[in-house]
Every structure is written in C-alpha cells, then in structure tokens.
Design a protein around this nucleic acid. Structure first.
Lengths: 332, 332
DNA sequence: TTGTAGGCGTTATCAG
DNA sequence: CTGATAACGCCTACAA
C-alpha cells in the first residue's frame, strides 16, 4: 500500500504538502495540488486512517450505544444516526447495553477504549449522576431519548410525560373510565414519565387511578401478554388498556384475542412509539408517535456541530410526541 | 493520560516488557508482571488503541455492512454479530448498503478505509464477480445470507430454495391450487432462490404456475400491499398467497383486510423469515424460519476463527429453513 | 505557498 | 526472560 511518502516523492513535493492536499485546510497552489492528486491516483494511494488518528488525535469515529440492536425502535434510531454520520464521513462503532447498568457502563468503557471522538448514547440503566460525571470527561457525550437537566445541552429528548398524557387523554375523550395500564420498567425514565402523564390525564379528568389495574411490564411483546393476563385475572373490569409502548400493546392484543376478547369492541388498546409495525397490526394500533429516527439524526448532528465543528447545522433538542389515531381504540 | 512509557518508568522495566504484560504473548516473570500491573493500576493506564493499531497493523475492528439498520431481519443479524464480537473484544463498525450496488460498494470502501481486520457483509446489490474479486484483497470478507460457490468457505447461508419449496409445499398440502406469489426484487439472490423453490414445489405437484399471479415486490410492507392490490386487480381468483418475506405478507394482510377479505378464511397467506412480529400479526403468520441471529453469530465466529486465530470455534455454514405453521394458512 | 523535523503511543525485531 | 531501538504513516508547528 502506497504511503504519503511515496506520493510526495512521485509528486516531487514534501510530505507536508501532500498532507495539506489531503486535508484541504491550508492553501496549496493549484499546480501543486494537481501534481499531488495525480500522483495519488497513479499510486492508488489511500490514507491510513490509523496513522492519521495517531498523529491528529482524532479517529473520525463516533461510538453509539443502544439497548438492543434488534427491535424496531432502536433500528430507527441507529438508522438516523448512521445516515447523518456517514454523510459526514464519520464512522459509527456500535455496541449494546441491554438496559442494564453494568452492561451499559461496560459498553461505554468499550467505546471509550476505542478512542471515539464522541459518544451518542441511549442509556436506561445508568443514573443521572453517572452521566453527569461522564460528561465531564474528555470525550463529549450526547444523549438521545433522555434529558438530564444539568447536561441538557447534550440531550435530544422527547416529552414523554406529554406523550403519556396525550394517550390517556385520547382514551378519556372516548368516554373510557375503567382504564388499565401496562408500564415499562419503573427504573427507566421513559417508563416513569409516560406513566406520570397517564396519571396527570386521569387526575385532570377526575378519574381515579386504580392501582390494581397497573402492571409493570418490560417493553416487550411478552411483557404485554403477561400484563394483560394479570390484569384480566384481577377480575376488575376495564374497557381500555394503555400500554407504554407498541411492543407490549401488540403482545397484549395477541393475548386478548387468543382469549376471546373482541378487539377493539370489547377493549380499546393504545400504544406508544409508533414503530413501523403498529400500522400493520390488526386492528391498526392507535399510538403516540416517537420520532426516533429524526431524534437519532439530531444526536448525530449535535455531535457534528460540537465535535467536528460543522457550523450552521440546525439541531432541535426537544421533540413533542403526537397522537396517531387508528383503529384499536373506540368510544366506549 | 498515562502512556506505556510512564508505566515502564514507574515499574522500572522497559517499554517492551510493559507491552508484553499487556499482550500476554511472551513469557514474563511473575514478579515483573506484578510490578507492571500495579504500576498500570496506579497510573490508571489504558492502552491507546490507535497507537497499538498503527504498530501492530491490527485494529481489532470488524466492519459490518447490512442493507438497512431498521427492519426486524437486519436487527437480528446485527445483534448476533455484535454479541459474538463484543465477547471477543472486537469492535464493530457498521454501515448500510441499501441493497443498491453503488451504495454497497461505497459502503465497503468506507469500511476498508477504516482498516478493518475483516468485513462481514450482507450484500444484495453487488455481483458474485465483484465479491470474488473483493475476496482476493488483503482484508478477509465474510458473507452472511448469501452463498457464492467460489468463496463458499467464507459464506454463511440459508438454503433459500428449500425454504421457498417448503412454503409452497405446505400450501399445496392444504389443497390450494390457485396460488399467487409476491416476490422480492428479482436481482436479489434470496428472492430468486425462494421463487425457484416455489416453482419447484408447484411443478412437483403438477400445478401450473400462473404468470399473471406473480408480482415482483420489494421485501417491504408497502410492496406487499401493492402486490396484492395488483394481483386482485387481475380478476383471476386465488385462494393462497405466498410472500417472499414477512414484511410483504403483513402489508398484504393489511390491504386484504381493508378490502373486505376475511383472513384466513378467504385467503391463506404465508411469509418467510419468521421475524419477531410474524407471531403477533393477526392471524398469526405461517412462515418459514430464517435463523438470522444465529447466522450472524456464525459470521462473527468465522471471522474470529480465521482472522483472530481463535481455534476450536465451531462454525456452521449452511442453514436449513424450517416451516412455522401458524394461523394465516388454512386448508382450502 | 512550501519544506523540515519532531512527535503521536505501541509493537516488533534483535541482541543480550 | 528482558532491554534497546527502529519502525508504523501521518500531522503540525516552525522555518524558509
């Protein structure tokens, strides 16, 4: 593989000049540039990323951590991040945290060990304090899908509480009063906030929250099925079921149908996220849209602007959820 | 950040010895090792991955290219790859090819520019010839989900034709004779092979293939909807619909239902892949299982064995699909 | 605008 | 088993 040295010899210029042509920072005369470029072509020269990193102290690599690589939600998020970064010629190195504190920390360490220029994280297990501490480190850290007051300038977040509020409000507007709820793990900020929105909507409407109709799920299909099973087992009637995400809603729908519940007539179900398959379920799932693709993009843009000095990229940091009315909810 | 140099000074040994302790290849006396290790601890030393790469000509990084980052299928594949590689302390850098020849080539270039130690690809747009040529290069290339005869020792693949055969055979076994087909893009090997299996099953059963009941989709929900729409528009009756993947099946199901078709009574639909949501559709989708998570793992293992010299890892290269009988297909 | 020279932090090759 | 020392390929003051 040709090195910069051979190029400089062939082009009859110094190493520095070749470097300048590559990087385009400094001025180089057109004639010189041409000489260099043609030498590069002739040798099929390709810069060595590693050497470049060592000398420049930049790797052009952004580390990304998500809870899971499968799952519709994270897929969209990664797609948004990758698209943006790739356009800017930055490499994405990816790893998972599985929503567990220790694994998330390991994952972050793992990314840091690679000398990433920046980190974009979707973490659910680690504490705010940990993140604040991490942010003081040398490597800039950006958070997608989570807002931490003290480092909010590094966060891209959704107003989850409002989303939860929207969901339940729409259910209430359809006249439901007996409403069950399947939540996400209550250590996850998303889950907590959505549930807070739910409670707020109820209280505003003067509807009492029935603790027996609350189930803590896990944001997965199976959790949704387990949830509705438990809720039905209470024997307490309910006409609507609010799920903290679409996966659980789909699990609940499946279970309900298998147990003779006629959807949506007997039971209205609403989800959260609006992942792609929500629209392909039957009945089509009413849900709250979480613009995670765009939020992923924004996380990437934030990094591009702050770390790589891309000026004038617009970054929106706080997103608002939106209700997607479909067929899985019906007036009581 | 402490460097190896400071460690060597504190431990009173040479750079080389510190390096040996880190890498554990060469023998170092226990006493020396302890000295070095404690010096490392004291300084909070962490090796610089970049410098290490430059000197060793290894990056401990594997480049992965998939068509899309969203999508249930690719999510599983990446999860399998990442899990395996992470366990072996290898970093995964990921990018997309969007099933287009040029973009795939760009993506591969992009990964190569990062000096990956190996590439694991799921490519659909590039030709066999291109891949064979690429394999002659310096960087080992492994293919998941595609088999190319000349480089089959680097491939992890599924017997797609058999899968297609299985699907249609199961439909025929239920007495269907009027069978429509929604295929994937006919430049993609998967799509071609599955369809070949379909034809084989038909011909074995003495059922004639009706060209008018063939539609070339795009492996996406929307393509499935467009497909069934076109098929219905022919006016030719059919009692079963074979889709080349689950996404299209789900799109077709949605469209069918919206147009008054009673599933599965009026129409049996079968998919391919067995992505997670197949089981949450209504009716639950009969499909052919594609063990892509495991295949991703195998791709990673192959790389670990061949590139990183991990002995004795067992690698299975050819997988067999399996029929998943569910509720979306019914005897005629 | 261009060239020179000293790093960047490790690994690897030799000796010892 | 351990130590010097030259790479590794490029960047970046600084000088010209």
């Amino acid at each position: 593989m040709a090195t910069i040295y051979e190029v400089s010899k062939l082009a009859n210029v110094s190493l520095a000049t070749v470097s300048r042509v590559m990087n385009g920072n400094t001025k180089v005369s057109d004639k010189t540039r041409e000489k260099v470029l043609s030498a590069m072509r002739e040798l099929g020269y390709r810069p060595n990323a590693t050497a470049r990193s060592l000398a420049s102290n930049r790797t052009d690599t952004v580390g990304v951590l998500v809870s899971e690589l499968n799952g519709a939600f994270f897929g969209e998020m990664m797609a948004g991040i990758e698209q943006e970064l790739r356009l800017a010629d930055k490499h994405v190195i990816i790893t998972t945290g599985h929503s567990e504190e220790e694994k998330e920390k390991d994952g972050i360490e793992f990314l840091l060990s690679r000398n990433c220029d920046a980190l974009i994280l979707h973490v659910e297990g680690v504490s705010d304090e940990y993140m604040i501490e991490l942010s003081k480190g040398k490597v800039p850290v950006y958070l997608v899908g989570r807002n931490i007051e003290q480092i909010s300038e590094n966060c891209i977040s959704l107003d989850n509480e409002y989303g939860g509020y929207l969901a339940t409000t729409s259910i209430l507007a359809q006249g439901h009063k007996e409403i069950a709820y399947i939540a996400g793990q209550q250590f996850k900020p998303d889950a907590i906030e959505r549930f807070a929105g739910h409670k707020k909507a109820l209280s505003e409407a003067g509807v009492e929250l029935n603790q027996s109709l609350f189930f803590e799920g896990d944001f997965k299909e199976t959790g949704g099925a387990a949830g509705i099973k438990a809720l039905l087992a209470t024997g307490i009637p309910f006409t609507a079921l609010v799920c903290a995400n679409d996966e659980m809603a789909s699990g609940a729908m499946k279970y309900a149908r298998e147990h003779g519940i006629d959807l949506p007539k007997d039971l209205s179900i609403i989800g959260f996220d609006n992942v792609i398959f929500a629209n392909y379920l039957y009945p089509k799932l009413t849900t709250v849209e979480y613009p995670i693709f765009e939020m992923g993009q924004m996380g990437a843009k934030l990094a591009l602007r702050e770390v790589y000095g891309k000026q004038d990229v617009y970054v929106k940091q706080v997103f608002s959820p939106q209700l997607k009315m479909r067929d899985s909810t019906l007036p009581v």
